[in-house]
Amino acid sequence: MNTAFWLITACLLMLVGMIWLALAKPVHWKQVLGAQANYGRHPVKALQRAGAISLLLSALACLAADHPSMAVLVWIMLLALSTFITAMILSWRPHWLQPLITVRRLTQS
């Protein structure tokens, strides 16, 4: 039960982290915000930092779930999965990601 909780946490953290890293790139930032992207600053550094921290936390969650040797593998495979999911959301349903940016903006202001 505990393992399942940590694994799900790791998944979510990884996915959110990857999305933030993707949004740090101007192309994807525009893709998600559309015309809105022209208003306001694009917080590249903040997004990158948030993404990196999220990935790191996800690694910690993997370590909490499994033996370290196994956690490494889970983390690397989650990296692949969430990058793929992120790319797919960005190309088919970019507007789904708008809430994530709003959250970032709130925490920033």
Partner: peptide, 17 residues
């Protein structure tokens, strides 16, 4: 041969990728 079903599914995904 380890017991880790999530990793097993992730491997399947990796192989299909």
């Amino acid at each position: 041969h380890f017991e880790h079903w999530s990793l097993r599914w992730l491997y399947l995904f990796g192989g299909l990728l």
